[in-house]
Design a protein around this nucleic acid. Structure first.
Lengths: 132, 132
DNA sequence: CCGTATCCCCGGGGATACTG
DNA sequence: CAGTATCCCCGGGGATACGG
């Protein structure tokens, strides 16, 4: 299970006034964030370990930090049961679900682009083959 | 002009299959990316230096790298005129403009949340003041 | 089981100086 | 003007071990 790194991201935005969507993108942009939200949306409320298993490759430290941030932004809810062993369940809040539409649209566009690019590459490859 | 850093982001996604919007978010998530797209959308096609001035605090290295990535993803178009001095103009492609709606929606949600949070904080402050 | 604490490391990003 | 080249640095993130 190798975990390639592919994109690093630092945001230096001084004031969000110059870019209205900065506030919200700062949330979505966090590392792994989309995987987490996607899993919570798709598989419903689930426990820490479950989530960690699904978001393959994430470290406990990172998962904790992301969940805390999302909780702080009221996108995710944390339910703690002090049983033995303890049981912690995470779920999307109402606010979290407000992203469903946008994320769906984003997913649609992304997949369309991927498909278009793939088709283009295939066409190019076929062209090359025909030319030889 | 101090430039605070506030969010770092590494994406370790192995396969995008587990998260359909990963592909597109990888683009938008890049550092400064939203500022750049926002400026190109708002102020129209513009030259490298102009863009650099508007995206306050970005380094030439970073701006170049981001523009190249966006160009590679066909979101941004680069027009080069070999005059003296040379003139390079960047603009959104048609594909780049496909994001207008989603980004607008995202901006709307983000601003609403910000307003809600601000109102909540104000209410809390007032409550505290009344209590003393 | 659900985390935190500690250590260590690496590569992304700024600053500066330079070219076409 | 629009970048590249070089250097340097720091802090984010993984791994590991441990606590409640």
């Amino acid at each position: 299970m190798d975990i390639p790194m592919d994109a690093k991201q630092i945001h230096h935005g001084k004031e969000s006034a110059s870019c209205p969507m900065d506030f919200i993108l700062r949330m979505l942009m966090g590392p792994w964030t989309t995987y987490i939200l996607y899993n919570l949306k798709t598989h419903g409320p689930q426990r820490f370990g479950e989530l960690k298993r699904r978001v393959a490759g994430i470290s406990a430290k990172m998962l904790t930090e992301r969940l805390r941030t999302l909780e702080g932004a009221s996108l995710v809810r944390r339910d703690y049961e002090a049983t033995i062993p303890p049981k912690v369940t995470y779920s999307l809040t109402q606010r979290g679900h407000e992203l469903d539409d946008v994320l769906g649209k984003l997913a649609e566009i992304g997949m369309r682009w991927e498909a278009e690019d793939a088709a283009l590459r295939a066409a190019r490859a076929a062209e090359l083959k025909a030319a030889e």
